[in-house]
């Protein structure tokens, strides 16, 4: 199952909720302001590093770029995809939940 999140984890709990209410092994795609969750050295980096070991975490490249975030600043194990990759994730998974 694919879970998308679009809120900054520093503003709203959508990312936390997506972790709590997704099964282990699910795909989570960070889009829009949720891309900030991928930053290493942040106050929530520990949670995200842990999540990378239980879920497959992806981040949308155009939204990273728009916000000036370089790949080198991201937590290891988070995979970068474009809109084509977003579509592929939605195809590969049999359902999609958007945590807004």
């Amino acid at each position: 199952m694919l879970h998308t999140v679009n809120k900054s984890p520093f503003q709203k709990n959508s990312f936390d909720t997506s972790l709590r209410l997704s099964r282990k092994g699910s795909d989570i795609l960070l889009i829009e302001d949720a891309v900030y969750a991928a930053l290493k050295d942040s106050a929530i980096a520990k949670t995200v590093k842990q999540a990378v070991t239980t879920h497959s975490i992806y981040v949308l490249e155009p939204d990273l770029m728009a916000r000036g975030l370089q790949p080198a600043r991201l937590i290891k194990g988070i995979q970068i995809v474009g809109y084509e990759g977003f579509v592929e994730l939605a195809v590969k998974n049999d359902k999609v939940q958007s945590w807004l």
Partner: peptide
């Protein structure tokens, strides 16, 4: 949630 087909928020 994982058993659903369509999820609206």
């Amino acid at each position: 949630i994982a058993e659903q087909d369509v999820l609206l928020n």
